[in-house]
């Protein structure tokens, strides 16, 4: 815009802004219609796909799929204590359900990301919650699982030998993302200062190895149990080829979203660079 007619420009600006507001107004109506439609779809999906605490139903749903992810990662949100399914107990309940679905579907690794990491300090309670939920699904013969918190280096296992577990659950929080990479950069700085590491040795491979050690391997499928795809500072290194899934306007951890994510994943193709 030129500065020759400031007043004319102001008028033109407000005129254009008025057009924009009209567009926004129309969009808000469309958005409300879409919201109702999305909620309706979600309701129908949750009636169509209902696990009913039976691993057999989940297995039947999964058996039609061409491929399964080896590692699933889920972004769950902490709700306020007053809400339904709120607080730390709500997150534990979500993890317990996800663990049961993964075990029934035959996915050997589950990573749960929660921004605050509220369950990191109550791993024992989490283990109880998961065991309890698995009983509801599998009866007394519950599959074995391990819970790992990479941030505190804590590992809890139902088996004596943690390598044999049917499911590996890892709990991630914000600190496992960028702050861990920062920490790694600091360490590498110190190592290069003391000449234990040459700058040329700092390769993608080295960093990948370190971060896999510190945080875990890259997931194949990331399910975001929120109304929009919001990565919430998820560890950036681990998102390279991860398939992402979310259901618009969904705000709970439910089986319909989980199984639809698996279906979507089964259809996807990876052809990196080729």
């Amino acid at each position: 815009m030129t500065t020759t007619h400031p007043r004319g420009n102001m008028v033109a600006f407000h005129f254009r802004h008025a057009i924009l507001l009209v567009v926004f107004f129309v969009m808000s109506i469309a958005r409300n219609v879409q919201y109702v439609y999305n909620k309706l779809c979600l309701r129908i999906f949750s009636m169509t796909y209902y696990p009913n605490k039976s691993p057999q139903i989940i297995r039947d749903d999964v058996s039609k799929l061409g491929k399964l992810p080896k590692r699933i990662s889920c972004i769950v949100s902490l709700r306020s204590d007053d809400d339904e399914n709120g607080g730390c107990d709500g997150v534990m309940g979500d993890v317990a359900e996800l663990a049961a679905w993964c075990l029934s579907a035959g996915v050997p690794s589950l990573t749960v990301y929660e921004y605050n990491g509220c369950v990191k300090s109550c791993v024992a309670e989490l283990q109880n919650a998961v065991t309890k939920n698995l009983r509801a699904y599998f009866g007394l013969q519950t599959p074995s699982f391990t819970i790992k918190v990479p941030h505190t280096n804590e590992v809890v296992s139902t088996e004596a030998n943690s390598g044999d577990a049917d499911l590996e659950i890892a709990v991630l929080l914000r600190v496992d993302g960028k702050p861990t990479i920062v920490e790694l950069a600091r360490t590498i700085g110190e190592l290069t200062a003391s000449k234990e590491l040459l700058p040329d040795d700092i390769t993608v491979k080295l960093i990948d190895g370190e971060l896999t050690e510190l945080v875990g391997p890259e997931p194949d499928l990331l399910i975001c149990f929120g109304p929009v795809l919001d990565l919430q500072d998820y560890p950036p290194w681990h998102l390279r080829l991860t398939e992402m899934y979310w259901e618009p306007d969904n705000n709970s951890v439910n089986y319909a979203v989980f199984i639809r994510a698996l279906k979507k994943f089964a259809q996807s193709r990876v052809n990196l660079g080729k």
Partner: peptide, 11 residues
Amino acid sequence: GNGQTMRRVVD
């Protein structure tokens, strides 16, 4: 920019 998000509860 993402649209209608849930409220973030932060510890």
